[in-house]
Nucleic acid binder design. Structure first.
Length: 498
RNA sequence: GGCGCUAUCGUCUAGGGGUUAGGACGUGAGAUUCUCAAUCUUAAAACACGGGUUCGAUUCCCGUUAGCGCUACCA
């Protein structure tokens, strides 16, 4: 098959701006983007903003903010609300073909009455349509419309028993359903505005979307969409439905129920790298089928196919204690370690700034390699590196300075003091580079009859203010002699008052 | 209620008529090490249930159950 037989695909991401950018939406966007890139097609962003009641500007901003952070560009952009004329014209055309009818039943009034009123004659399928309205003669319909009576426009779903609707979903396979099981859904609301189904299909047809890749919650709706495309005389695109992302309780993610963890910006603000977040999201419902899990965006693009997508919902694992899926955090740690130091430094800088630290580029470049293996989220950087930037160490328990000599034997304050005093003497004239410090301090330990461990612990606590920190010699090198000597002297003072 | 989709370790997944059912995260143990981390080794941990088909089903078919989705003049 030549390139001419296969026009390049056009895919779209069509969020409705009724909230922030949701992780599930982000994944849908990513899968569309991957498909477009993989197949050299076009990625289209369309804001499906037909629900005037619920749309907000803040939401539009949040969506753009989230997508910008992901760093995946799109090629074309549209706003559904600017295409209303097209939708209404399409509705008119479907109506003229006799494929739709006016339903004058007042909105929200149709609720309970049909079931009891119709009796046995209507089968139990009264929900399918409103028989009185579906069969209303055209003249009467026109007269009532002309008189200003408001109506919704409904699709006249074919009712011959043998009419089967079907399509081949790229993920779920052949889907088919008797048209008889599809209700006469609305195309136009009584205020004249298009419904989601109409607007979406009209735009998909007009924008010549070739592949609709979207959440599985639309799988059943697709039968309606097939009917609309048919009414539009447009070929139906290829469909690919994605398994849903759900919360640990199995329910679909909602802000009200699950809080800010469903928003993309929460991940950004906690210090996820966009490529790590993307890596994680792709692994939910898709797999490269080999045992790789750490993948760059390019690597994913290279092997991404629709038929490697699963059919069952994926749980995104989080809790109050652990707001992020442990696997997402782990992958982020891997991506952090994979990043060149200068890029990591640049990524960390804003998080340090937020904590009030504004190191020089040189110092930042020196500190970054010391913490890169110790953080899994960029947001952990300030806490991991504070002592590099603080003039005065935060208060710590002087007891921390007392070294553990062996598993069961603990030293005392006198020992700690001897260590620190010795260290201060040695450090006063040792060159501040890794190897010199290493040699000098180990020799000092031998002098005191100590193993390296018990020797280094008091120094580490004195210099960093805590027991757990990056390797000692590198740390001291970055801190410099003056700071180290000063902090050791302070520690000695703490010990004498103990 | 109707219609539809789904079902492998706690979670994400690979696999597929005959396998020690593989990997990853997390958890436990160990190694390494100046602490922590990183790294390496290792352990525990799964085919929802019931019927078929078959010499043989976790795998194919049917049913049950469970979960989810749709069933709006929301998207």
């Amino acid at each position: 098959m030549s390139a001419h037989d296969r026009p390049s695909p056009r895919v779209r991401f069509a969020p409705s701006p009724t909230g922030f950018l949701h992780v599930g939406s982000a994944r849908t966007f990513i899968f569309n983007w991957l498909y477009a890139r993989r197949n050299h097609g076009a990625m289209i962003l369309r804001l499906d903003d037909t629900d005037v009641e619920r749309n907000t500007d803040a939401s539009v901003q949040s969506i753009f903010e989230g997508l910008r952070w992901l760093g995946l560009a799109w090629d074309e952009e549209y706003k559904q609300s600017e295409r209303l004329d097209l939708h209404r014209a399409a509705a008119q055309s479907i109506f003229e073909k006799g494929l739709a009818y006016r339903d004058f039943t007042p909105a929200h009034a149709a609720e309970g009455e049909s079931s009891s009123a119709q009796g046995a004659a209507s089968r139990e399928g009264a929900w399918l349509f409103n028989p009185g309205m579906r069969d209303l003669p055209r003249e009467e319909s026109d007269r009532r419309a002309a008189a200003g009576e408001s109506f919704a426009l409904r699709y006249r779903v074919p009712r011959h028993q043998d009419r089967i609707l079907q399509f081949n979903d790229a993920v779920y396979g052949l889907q088919s359903k008797p048209a008889d099981d599809v209700e006469d859904f609305a195309l136009l609301r009584s205020d004249g505005n298009p419904t989601y189904h109409l607007a979406s299909c009209v735009d998909d047809a007009d924008l010549r979307i070739s592949h609709i890749i979207r959440g599985q919650d639309h799988l059943t709706n697709t039968f309606k969409h097939l009917l609309i495309f048919e009414g539009l005389n447009a070929p139906a695109p290829q469909f690919a439905h994605l398994p849903l992302l759900v919360a640990p309780d199995g329910a679909k993610l909602s802000k009200r129920k699950h809080g800010p963890v469903v928003s993309v910006t929460t991940y950004r603000d906690a210090g996820f790298l966009p490529q790590a977040f993307l890596n994680f999201l792709c692994l939910l419902g898709w797999s490269p089928k080999d045992d790789r899990e750490f993948l760059t965006t390019d690597e994913i693009t290279a092997v991404f196919t629709l038929d490697n997508i699963n059919r069952s919902n994926a749980v995104i694992n989080f809790s109050e204690q652990d707001p992020f899926d442990p696997k997402a955090v782990h992958l982020n740690g891997e991506h952090i370690r994979a990043l060149p130091v200068d890029q990591l430094a640049a990524a960390i800088a804003p998080f340090l700034a937020q904590a009030g630290f504004h190191p020089t580029p040189e110092k930042l470049a020196a500190v970054t390699p010391l913490i890169r293996e110790r953080i899994k989220l960029l947001g952990e950087a300030p806490a991991a590196a504070d002592f590099f930037f603080l003039d005065e160490l935060p208060a710590y328990d002087p007891a921390e300075l007392i070294p553990q000599i062996s598993k069961k034997e603990s030293g005392d304050a006198a020992l700690a003091l001897r260590v620190l005093t010795k260290a201060r003497e040695v450090l006063a004239h040792t060159p501040f580079d890794h190897d010199s410090l290493d040699a000098a301090l180990r020799a000092a330990a031998t002098d005191l009859g100590l193993k390296p461990g018990p020797m280094f612990q008091p120094i580490r606590v004195a210099v960093c203010g805590r027991k757990n920190a990056p390797p000692l010699f590198e740390t001291m090198t970055v801190l410099g002699r003056d700071t180290c000597l000063h902090r050791i002297a302070q520690a000695e003072a703490k010990l004498t008052t103990l």
